[in-house]
Amino acid sequence: MTATPIMKKYRFSMRMVDVLLSGESADGAHGRTGTLVALIDRQMITAATSETGGRHLLTEKGREVLAELRAAAQPDDHACVADGEGRDAAALTHIRTENGVTALVTTRAALDEINAGMMRPTKKLVRQMSARGASASLEYFDGRKVSICPATPEEIEALSAKAQPTALATEYRTLKGAKIGDTLTLWERGGKKGPTGTPTTVTIAEIRGGWYVTSPGSDRARFLGGTGSKYWVVVA
């Protein structure tokens, strides 16, 4: 399936979809004023008032439409796997391979990475990409090559049987105090409620009005974020 019919139905631009996606963060929706006004007119987000803490929040209608957009990006023939007690065990439903290293990831993490590769501002990190439904191949400018696809029940069973690492201790903070040459494992996306996607390992290359980092397999420095930006960071 594709989200295009839904975008036409609600007269959305890609920029408006970007703003809707950002509205799931604890800080609320953010974007250009004209885009915010258009979504307010469509009753997708609230106006920023004292009652909302000065934030543009998703309305109930906005959450429903965003769910429609996400559902449209998933393949029709991918069945969820349920555990023995009837709970949804499809938390890990996709295979993500980065530079030859394979792991199971959640549907949410898979679709978030695919969406990020197609939408501003994060699509500028991608050199080239091909995607269809919930499958994609991405090549990042920092040297990472990633493939994402739905996993079969047999693949889920086989990968789940491997020893799982101990849960990582993390904290949500800025990178204040980091020095050039320091290596950190962090999530590049996410808000106060938790990280989004999968963690990456980066090395601080420059501190010039913000953080410039390199990734394993690539010496090319890229802009990570401003010095005041917060990330979920693995505690050493």
Rank of each mutant, 00 (worst) to 15 (best):
M1Y: 11
T2R: 14
T2V: 09
T4K: 14
K8Q: 15
K8F: 13
Y10F: 15
R11Y: 12
F12Y: 15
S13E: 03
M14V: 13
V17N: 02
D18W: 05
D18E: 15
S22A: 14
S22R: 14
G23V: 00
G23M: 12
S25N: 07
A26S: 12
A26T: 04
D27K: 10
H30C: 12
G31E: 03
T33H: 11
G34F: 05
I40D: 08
I40G: 07
I40H: 08
M44I: 05
A47H: 07
A48F: 07
E51N: 05
E51I: 04
T52G: 04
T52W: 10
R55I: 00
R55N: 01
L57F: 07
L57Y: 06
L58V: 02
K61E: 11
G62R: 01
G62I: 01
R63M: 08
E64Q: 14
V65R: 00
A67C: 00
E68V: 00
L69A: 02
A71G: 06
A72N: 03
A73L: 08
A73R: 09
A73S: 05
P75H: 07
D76I: 03
D77H: 11
D77T: 07
D77C: 02
C80N: 07
D88V: 02
A91K: 03
L92D: 10
T93A: 11
H94W: 07
E98H: 06
E98C: 09
N99T: 01
V101C: 03
T106Q: 08
T106V: 01
R108H: 13
R108K: 14
A109T: 02
L111Y: 04
L111M: 10
D112Y: 15
E113C: 06
N115T: 06
A116W: 13
T122M: 11
R127D: 15
A131T: 09
R132W: 08
A136L: 05
A136R: 10
L138A: 11
D142N: 13
K145H: 14
V146S: 10
S147M: 06
S147P: 08
C149V: 04
T152A: 12
T152M: 04
E154I: 01
E155M: 09
E155W: 03
I156L: 00
I156Q: 14
A158C: 09
L159H: 02
S160T: 14
A161H: 12
A163S: 15
Q164H: 09
Q164S: 13
T166F: 09
A167R: 15
L168C: 13
A169E: 15
A169L: 12
A169V: 10
A169W: 03
E171P: 06
E171C: 08
R173D: 12
R173I: 06
L175W: 04
K176D: 15
G177W: 01
G177D: 03
A178I: 00
K179D: 06
K179Y: 02
G181F: 00
T183A: 08
T183G: 04
L186V: 02
L186R: 01
W187Q: 05
E188H: 10
G190V: 03
T203W: 02
I204M: 01
A205I: 05
A205H: 08
E206T: 08
G210W: 00
V213G: 13
G217L: 06
S218V: 00
R220A: 15
R222I: 12
G225P: 01
G226W: 04
G228C: 10
S229T: 08
S229Q: 11
K230P: 09
V233I: 09
V234A: 07
V234N: 06
V234W: 03
V235Q: 11
